[in-house]
Design a protein around this nucleic acid. Sequence first.
DNA 1: GCTTCTGACGAACGATCGTGCTAAAAAGGA
DNA 2: TCCTTTTTAGCACGATCGTTCGTCAGAAGC
Lengths: 197, 197
Amino acid sequence: MGKGDATREIILDEAAGLARQVGLGGLTIGSLATRTGMSKSGLFAHFGSKEAMQLQVLDHETDRFTSEVVRPALSAPRGEPRVRALFEGWLAWDSADGGCPLVAAAFELDDQPGPVRDRLLHNQRDWFDTLATIASTGVAEGHFRPDTDPRQFAQDIEGIMLAFHVASRLLSDPDAAARAHRGLDALLAAAAAPAAP
Amino acid sequence: MGKGDATREIILDEAAGLARQVGLGGLTIGSLATRTGMSKSGLFAHFGSKEAMQLQVLDHETDRFTSEVVRPALSAPRGEPRVRALFEGWLAWDSADGGCPLVAAAFELDDQPGPVRDRLLHNQRDWFDTLATIASTGVAEGHFRPDTDPRQFAQDIEGIMLAFHVASRLLSDPDAAARAHRGLDALLAAAAAPAAP
DNA sequence: GCTTCTGACGAACGATCGTGCTAAAAAGGA
DNA sequence: TCCTTTTTAGCACGATCGTTCGTCAGAAGC
């Protein structure tokens, strides 16, 4: 990794932190340059355009999300434990400062067509598929009833996560996490295969 | 209502439409002036500052939300029918172009301190209370089990709404609404009071 | 040693940002 | 109708936006 790649990584880290506060659209070359102690033009040269920078920030955060949340969860035992691991990982991830940047981007870009939205859409589809796949793994393991709809499960669990996000981050509700856990328990209980007698 | 108030109403309508696309922070006096066919300074004079304008846009949309979603639902019979009415009303409201602007604002401002966030926080607390109140009304009516936690119910139902928002608006999933309905059914079934024998 | 390439900088560009100030136009009550 | 108040436009301001360009120190290759 050359010097260029190293500083670009630093820039992306800083950019992600800034984007978590002001959104991807609120990212500014000038403020980012000040933050990193670089000149505007020196920083700009790394990307060539603001849009290219936004795309790289998006990819950067998606990679981080994959390695910090998704991959660890996939090393948990298949079925219900894996669902719980993913859920816990996500809660921790969203509780870090600024919250999940991808969630913020999803609500920011839902009505702004363009390459950035396209990229995010692709990532979010992958995420939704991951949720559904983990759910259907639970069925295959015999943890969940055979008629469980994986995509229904995916949308339900995502709802619990999103409600936690707003309850904890905006409303500062100290019970948000407890309720999220209770929501997940209810979801798992409803999907649970009847105990073999 | 004098002429000033009338045009200010027009401006706020237009501003809300724009904010649904680009967010409250993305609102711009210049673009708003172009949209309404006014001069920048003429438009600006109605508000005195950009922040004051954002606050009025927020109030404007909150009022609209109250009269288009909350109030109609409150005229439905108490208990479960009222929950369903509120839910249906919200789904329709969020399916209009741009989606629910308050949801977008909630995710945009969760990390941006200031008067605008404070106002939004206040509104969102009211909304959460409304959800909880309607839930506890269901308990009082005997539709829901006595041990139903109204605030748990509120966070759960909000999760279903938020998951619908992203599934339908970003992912363009045609099954989003159907899953939201199934999610609500499951929630209501879990809370339902056991039928009197 | 000299050359070449890379990474960063400073200055400047036109455009647009939010915000004043002043004057004209419009509205409304007498 | 006249007069006052309200509403709008015009113009200008400093700041900042994204972007381009020429330059230059230092690392790398020969």
